[in-house]
Simulated scan of single mutants.
Amino acid sequence: MPGASAEAAARQARMTDRIVLRTATADDIPALLDLWARAAKGASITDDEAGVAALLARDPDCLIVATTADDPATPVGTVIAGWDGWRCHLYRLAVAPDHRRRGIGAALLAAAEERFTALGGRRADAMVLDDNAPGHRTWQAAGYRPEPQWSRWVKPLPA
């Protein structure tokens, strides 16, 4: 069907046009934690109110939230675009299951990359679980690739 891809692109654009991107606020924290519990694969030791509040206190613009124009109070997607002055780190790219395949993840990544560019960042990296196949497709579609020569080394810090 020759017009099928154009039709799909037009439908995608209409759905994406209804998405609003903004930075998170402290009032969003409970809804963000709920979204991450439903939509993000794997939990982080900082997935709690104190952890997200500390993130927002340190860098109020780093947590980008997608909502719909119809319901601007309910997050349907997120990405943390952390900048430490040296590196650009992406975490918690998550889209609500009932809002996937609408361009929300791509819009969030584009906003994060714009933030990084404005701050002087040169390369963005993302934390992606090895067994998160749907996540791999999203990251690959946005131009990200794994670097097999790197491994993540971690050490939990005392409370």
Rank of each mutant, 00 (worst) to 15 (best):
E49L: 04
E147M: 06
V76P: 11
G103L: 08
A37Q: 14
R100S: 06
H136F: 03
E113M: 10
P134Q: 02
T25Y: 05
A142W: 02
E7N: 10
A106L: 06
T23H: 15
A124H: 01
A13R: 15
D130M: 02
A10G: 06
P2M: 11
A50L: 12
V95P: 07
V79W: 02
Q12A: 15
V128Y: 01
A96E: 13
W150C: 06
M15K: 15
V20E: 15
A66D: 12
L33S: 13
V52E: 01
V154H: 12
A24M: 04
R115F: 03
G42D: 07
R58N: 13
A24W: 05
G85K: 07
P156H: 06
G121D: 01
H89R: 10
V128P: 01
R100N: 03
D98T: 11
K41A: 11
L55I: 04
R145V: 11
V128W: 01
R87F: 06
D61W: 02
E113N: 04
D34G: 07
P30R: 07
R102Q: 15
A53Y: 05
V52K: 02
R123V: 08
L35N: 10
G82I: 02
A81M: 11
N132L: 02
D27K: 13
A126Q: 02
D28Q: 07
R11V: 15
G120N: 12
P158M: 01
M127A: 08
T46Y: 13
C88I: 00
K155T: 08
G121E: 05
W153P: 00
H136E: 03
A141M: 03
P97A: 06
D17C: 00
T78V: 09
Q149S: 14
P158G: 13
R92S: 06
A66E: 07
A6S: 13
R123G: 00
T78H: 09
R115P: 08
D84N: 15
A26K: 06
A69C: 07
D131Y: 03
L56I: 04
P97E: 00
C88P: 00
S151Y: 07
W86D: 10
L32V: 14
D131G: 05
L119K: 10
T67P: 01
M127C: 01
R22V: 14
P30D: 11
R58M: 13
S151M: 09
A37S: 14
W86I: 13
G51P: 14
A13L: 14
H89I: 05
R122H: 07
T117R: 15
V128N: 13
A6F: 07
Y91K: 03
W139E: 01
E113V: 08
V65K: 09
L21S: 09
D47G: 08
A50M: 04
G42R: 10
P146F: 04
Y144T: 04
H89W: 06
Y91Q: 10
P134K: 05
K155G: 04
